[in-house]
Design a protein around this nucleic acid. Structure first.
Length: 917
RNA sequence: GCCGUCUUAGCUCAGUGGUAGAGCACUCGCUUCACACGCGAUAGGUCACAAGUUCAAAUCUUGUAGACGGCACCA
């Protein structure tokens, strides 16, 4: 079989996913081992308005790598996919569509029709991400796909709401909330971000004190709110205003009389030391108002315009226009003291960047005190969730919880879970799961349901258990028993509070379990400019474009290679590295297949090698070749290390281990070392015959096959494509739990690695051979000797290494491009020779007529300088009595040995240098 | 204001007490029959700065400077 010369990702990506999905490989049911341990991950549900961005790609890569790894290890794995209904975002999309297509407002078509449109929108556009996930190769169980507004999940929401209400954890109250005038809904604190405005103004207004000619000056950034002022406050200990406390102000433009009060809240040092108090439009003022029994005068509508209470002149006027008008009128009245430029940070709506208006409004809240204690308790007693990396996330999470305020859960939207609360004509509230129940509770009255819906995060908060079938009516399911707690949650910092914390709390509350054991918080993938990717910065990189350009596998393994937990800049060159890696894997396989005639993957072929590593022949020479013993040792070491790294969520080191094993050990050395043995162009007469040749072919195919399995979690398409082409791969290689399934690498067992297969002797011997070859190559390169010239290499070493070099003579000659190897106790070479030392040998290359004496002098001098520098440093340490006394004896011996070794190497090189003269 | 992170080769980043690493870029040499998305060989770093702890610090502690994140406040 012959492969194309280069890997074309597209062709592999086209067909495997469909087969995997249709064969049911992604579902936990594929695992037929009744004893199999479960391993589960629920996806952070992307919202239906979204499309795949680099953050998703990173997180999905991590989740899929973990799931594929565990699946191959025989766990009953479930990665559960789904989407959330994204209340505000979908609502906005539908509103825009309505306006554009029909020039209508939501109120023109009514709630019922609007919701129909929203569902239609979701059906049409809401599957973008799920389709993109197929391209990513995500091995999610689509049969368990959930949507936060599915019937069962919606029932769960209603049941949870009712229970929390009945137990007093949910209440309805009049509070200052964050209002987005554009979206016309209240927002939770977490959905409000801050934006610094450099062109802000601080306006100083003079308020006349009644029965006096005095005025009191207040400063404000929102002059229009003065229309709702119901007091002016000063600090009671502020001497400037002492006499004014208790007096009355005639509030300009309104002619209302408002008191001057004393309150601790006022900082005498700040501004004028006098503060206008607007209890209905400012959270601090609200508190002051409560303390002093002030009227809460609402002067604004929920669309950001002023209302009648602001006065006839302002009624209906936009808040910003009203601001200008208020200032102008104060100016006319001579009551405008001044307007200063002022840099101000304003709260804005996270989604639409509209300036958020703090406003007094009646909303539903979740009381957070007990929830918080529950989550803190989980952290303190069980260290749950176990964050990775622990620093700094555990502390940030804990700090946030400690300062938690109540959660505003009502939203003035139509799309979402309508609040299961009904009102009678008198405004009495009846909370129930259905209208019938509510009516029954009311004693048969006519009721109307609350107009608002719940925050999308309220339903997302139930995700860990509602997705497994819990809905309050049904509280036990097989999936729930099998898969909760989920093993790990993989997500970004941005939703740690919005989602992670709430899911912990609600899962504990309703199923008395932790939602997930571990929580991997990924870093942010930054744009090339080092800033978070965003549309406004136009520094975003589209994962799909990367898939097209470099292939899915290259993009995935690159993402895994940067998944350290730290933020990282996107770098096309990095993906290119792994595109090249994919091509390298392709070509290594291509080479093996070109020479695989008559051979097939056979794991028994490595058994004798394992045996020799486990029980080295007593003093004797192992029968298997060094290269074979070495690659098996390296293979197992890599497998052990990769498993360990994945277990610690150190994806970048797993990738690095695999990269270097495959490229350096397998391609650069192993393939080259055994090339002659397996190819038809090898040195025929040196071989013991066809049988030996076949065994070597089987071995290399087998090593390759194991390597592909280790790479599969990161590079699913490429590895499946190649695995299918390797002779001898079949479902016999599957993990026992999947014995019956059609052959696929994704169900093959993941190499666990065997510590006893680590062959220290083979590794030491191989490194002697590699070092020797590298030194010869170095001489050739530095002496500028053409590869066409095959010279003789003289090697001196102790008896054991002489044997090693003799046993590997053919390989050394080939890789060093030498004609002859002369091995002995001492070097016996003419003066015109280039020389070098390794840790285990001395070597020389006679270069009669080729040597550049000056060049050789420089080369030797450089080597001597390098070694001397190291020796000087070591000897300095060894002369230090403190070091020798206090450092571990092992360390001291190690340094001493190294120093002795260096001494001998330097001496040799010096002799070589002198010999040139 | 409070909490926290980062600063390592030209670039992007690993490494977290015991001789500084990778990929890419750079330099030199290769149309070597798996791969030029390649092969071989070099070069390149007082690990931001300062002090301390230690036999030993890129790594631990404190401070300084710069970059950044979260929370709170902002009349």
């Amino acid at each position: 079989m012959e492969l194309d010369k280069a890997y074309d990702p597209k062709s592999a990506e086209e067909h495997h996913y469909k087969r995997w999905e249709e064969s049911g490989f992604f579902a936990p049911e594929i695992n037929t081992d009744p004893e199999a341990k479960p391993y589960s991950i629920v996806i952070p549900p992307p919202n239906v308005t979204g499309s795949l961005h680099m953050g998703h790609a990173l997180q999905h890569t991590i989740m899929d790598s973990l799931i594929r790894w565990k699946r191959m290890l025989g766990y009953r794995t479930l990665w559960l996919p789904g989407t959330d209904h994204a209340g505000i975002s979908v609502q906005r999309k539908v509103v825009e569509q309505l306006k554009k297509d029909e020039h209508k407002k939501p109120t023109d078509i009514g709630r019922e029709e609007f919701i129909k449109r929203a569902w239609a929108w979701k059906e049409q556009y809401g599957n973008t991400i799920t389709e993109q996930m197929r391209r990513e190769g995500a091995s999610v169980d689509w049969s368990r796909h959930r949507f936060t507004m599915d019937e069962s999940l919606s029932l769960a929401v209603r049941n949870v709401f009712c229970t929390l209400y009945d137990e007093g954890w949910i209440y309805r109250g009049l509070r200052i909330v964050n209002w987005c005038p554009k979206d016309r809904t209240v927002l939770s604190d977490l959905e409000v971000k801050e934006e610094t405005k450099k062109d802000g103004k601080l306006t100083y207004l003079k308020y006349p004190v009644m029965d006096s000619d005095q005025t009191i000056t207040v400063a404000t950034t929102r002059p229009e709110t003065m229309l709702g002022d119901t007091a002016v406050a000063v600090n009671g200990s502020d001497k400037r205003y002492k006499d004014l406390v208790g007096k009355t102000i005639l509030l300009p433009l309104t002619n209302r009389e408002i008191p001057i009060i004393a309150d601790e809240y006022v900082d005498a040092e700040f501004g004028t030391g006098a503060v206008k108090i607007t209890p209905a439009h400012d959270p601090n003022d609200y508190l002051v108002g409560e303390r002093h029994g002030l009227e809460q005068l609402l002067v604004m509508n929920l669309d950001g315009t002023m209302n009648a209470a602001a006065g006839a002149e302002f009624d209906g006027m936009d808040r910003f226009a009203a601001r200008e008008k208020v200032v102008a009128m104060f100016d006319e009245l001579g009551l405008l003291e001044k307007v200063d430029d002022y840099e101000i940070t304003l709260p804005v709506c996270e989604r639409c960047k509209t300036v958020v208006e703090p406003i007094l409004s009646e909303q539903w809240f979740v009381k957070m005190d007990e929830m918080r204690d529950m989550a803190l308790d989980l952290m303190k007693t069980e260290g749950s969730p176990h964050f990775s990396p622990r620093v700094p996330h555990e502390k940030v999470y804990t700090n946030w919880l400690e300062n938690l305020k109540d959660w505003t859960i009502s939203r003035q939207l139509w799309w979402g879970h309508q609040i299961p609360a009904w009102y009678d004509a008198e405004g009495n509230v009846f909370v129930a799961r259905t209208e019938e129940e509510a009516v029954a509770k009311s004693g048969g009255k006519d009721l109307t349901q609350d107009n608002d819906v719940l925050d999308t995060w309220f339903s997302s908060g139930l995700w860990a258990f509602s997705t497994f079938g819990w809905n309050g009516d049904v509280t036990e399911t097989d999936d729930l028993n099998a898969f909760l707690p989920t093993d790990v949650l993989v997500t970004g910092r941005d939703i740690m509070f919005l989602w992670v914390s709430r899911m912990m709390m609600l899962t504990k509350k309703f199923v008395d379990k932790t939602a997930f054991n571990d929580c991997v918080i990924t870093g942010t993938v930054l744009g090339k400019d080092g800033k978070p990717m965003s549309k406004s910065r136009n520094n975003g990189v589209d994962p799909i474009e990367m898939f097209d350009k470099f292939g899915v596998d290259a993009t995935r393994i690159y993402l895994a290679s940067i998944a350290t937990g730290a933020d990282i800049r996107w770098n096309d060159v990095g993906v290119e590295t792994y595109r090249n890696f994919a091509n390298k894997i392709w070509n290594a396989t291509r080479f093996c297949l070109m020479n695989a005639e008559g051979a097939a993957v056979d794991h028994k072929s490595l058994e004798s090698l394992l045996q020799q590593a486990k029980e080295p022949p007593e003093g004797g020479t192992p029968s298997a070749s060094l290269a074979d013993r070495w690659i098996v040792s390296r293979l197992n070491r890599t497998a052990l290390d990769v498993n360990a790294a994945l277990g610690k969520y150190e994806f970048h080191s797993a990738v690095s281990l695999l990269y270097h094993f495959f490229w350096d050990d397998f391609c650069d050395w192993y393939i080259e070392l055994v090339k002659d043995e397996i190819t038809s162009w090898g040195v025929e007469e040196e071989r013991s015959g066809g049988e030996q040749n076949l065994a070597a072919k089987v071995r290399i195919l087998t090593v390759l096959e194991i390597a592909l399995r280790m790479l599969h979690p990161f590079m699913p398409y490429l590895t499946e494509e190649l695995w299918q082409k390797l002779p001898g791969t079949s479902n016999a290689l599957h993990h026992a739990a999947y014995a019956g399934a059609d052959a696929t690498i994704m169900l093959a067992s993941f190499p666990p690695g065997d510590e006893r297969a680590i062959d220290a002797r083979a590794e030491a011997e191989m490194s002697a051979v590699i070092e020797l070859i590298k030194k010869v190559r170095n001489i050739r390169a530095e002496m500028n000797i053409s590869t066409a010239i095959r010279f003789t290499v003289h090697v001196a070493a102790d008896a054991a290494f002489q044997d090693v070099f003799r046993a590997n003579e053919a390989q050394i000659l080939k890789l060093a491009k030498a004609a002859e190897l002369v091995i002995g106790d001492e070097l016996d070479v003419p003066r015109a020779s280039a020389k070098a030392v390794t840790n285990d040998a001395r070597l020389a290359v006679p270069l009669e007529g080729l040597i550049d004496f000056d060049g050789e002098r420089t080369r030797l001098a450089n080597q001597i300088a390098k070694l001397t520098e190291e020796k000087t440093r070591l000897d300095g340490q060894l002369l230090n009595a403190n070091f020798v006394d206090r450092a571990p004896a092992e360390k001291v011996t190690e340094l001493r040995d190294r120093s002795t070794e260096l001494e001998s190497q330097i001496a040799t090189l010096n002799n070589n240098l002198e010999a040139l003269d």
